[in-house]
Design a protein around this nucleic acid. Structure first.
Length: 342
DNA sequence: AAGTCGGGGGC
DNA sequence: GCCCCAGACTT
């Protein structure tokens, strides 16, 4: 057993975070194992998502669908609607597809190499599920682990290439048992001690041998490739309603916000550098309600919102104005719809 | 290797 | 404003 893993596991025994899908290190010693379904669901929900945000969705999903069989039997529309607001909607599509596969195969594969073949399960999530739920001897390298290890070893390879370097550095440092605890311990350490800014090296179990700490350069790691500026786009969206219902539409199965409900919208045109954003006016599009700003992963959007009140019945998909919050609208459209209420 | 794909919270 | 967050998938 390496000194490295012993220190981390000892620290974890005293400082493990308590989370709804977890089994404490004490309970694990008594032979209690976590539910693979809950581990999988939490891992997928937390991909690029903070715990305070994801945890609400986890509790809601497990309340609606306590088992993977329940989720597999659910209506796809219900799953997508419940995912609305969590982002990265391909995760929800893959989640549903994965539930169907797992349910038909009688359960989750128990090894990372097989888990990784399932939709929405990549290298990290496969390692996390395999180690946490089945105690396989595998590492799970997420953003926390990247930060801890690049600091500990002063790895100056820029991300994302450093991910492989970290994985290779971690392998010989794995413990000889408690693989699930080890995975969770590294993540807890990264989340609570070895934080992106202002790491708490004073209370870190690794600080004695940490290369970055020795050099006083903790925040210099991990090294990241420079990021590109986000282009700006502009479009308009219409709130078409009759006082009781509002027109919505199903977005295409590919591309941005795929498969989600949306509002009728124009194309979102790129605004060139230094180019002015078109002025809104209430003449032709309806009554101008205001402008909504929303930042996506790779562009920033300004959306002018217009209200068009109709007396004739609405055709196509609609949703009651009284319960817009339950319409399953992604955040950008929820922001726009809110201009009608407020 | 680079692009695509959401959203919220911290500072 | 910029950064980050239990990343995966496509090209």
């Amino acid at each position: 057993m390496s000194e490295f893993s012993t220190r981390i596991l000892d620290w974890y025994d005293a400082h493990a975070r308590q989370l709804p899908w977890r089994v404490s290190p004490q309970a694990r010693r008594r032979g209690v194992m976590p539910d693979p379904y809950r581990v999988w669901l939490s891992e997928v929900m937390l991909q690029q998502t903070t715990i305070p945000h994801g945890i609400r969705y986890f509790l809601r999903f497990t309340e609606l669908w306590p088992t993977v069989e329940d989720l597999a039997r659910a209506d796809r529309e219900d799953v997508m609607r419940e995912w609305a607001g969590l982002g990265y909607y391909a995760r929800a599509r893959n989640l549903y597809a994965c539930a169907q596969l797992v349910s038909s195969q009688g359960g989750f594969p128990r090894v990372a190499s097989e888990l990784k073949k399932l939709p929405g399960i990549g290298p990290y999530t496969a390692g996390a599920i395999a180690s946490i739920a089945f105690d396989e001897r595998v590492a799970a390298v997420d953003g926390n682990v990247e930060r801890v290890m690049t600091r500990f070893l002063a790895i100056d390879t820029p991300l994302p290439k450093a991910k492989q370097v970290v994985a290779e550095a971690l392998e010989p440092r794995l413990p000889d048992h408690r693989f699930g605890d080890f995975t969770q311990a590294l993540m807890d350490l990264g989340a609570t001690i070895c934080t992106p800014r202002g790491p708490a090296c004073l209370t870190c179990p690794l600080s004695d041998d940490c290369a970055a700490h020795a050099a006083g350069r903790e925040e210099a790691f991990p090294v990241k490739a420079p990021k590109k500026p986000k282009p700006v786009r502009h479009g308009i969206v219409k709130l078409i309603h009759n006082g009781k219902h509002m027109a919505i539409e199903r977005r295409p199965d590919k591309g941005l916000l795929a498969g989600m409900n949306g509002l009728p919208t124009s194309d979102w045109n790129v605004i060139g550098e230094g180019e002015p954003i078109p002025e809104p006016d209430s003449t032709d599009q309806g009554k101008y309600l205001g402008r909504v700003e929303h930042v996506f992963t790779h562009f920033k959007l300004f959306l002018d919102v217009y209200e068009e009140q109709r007396t004739a019945p609405l055709d196509g998909l609609t949703t009651p104005l009284s319960s817009l919050g339950e319409a399953g609208l992604p955040s950008v459209f929820a922001k726009a719809a809110n201009l009608l209420v407020t």
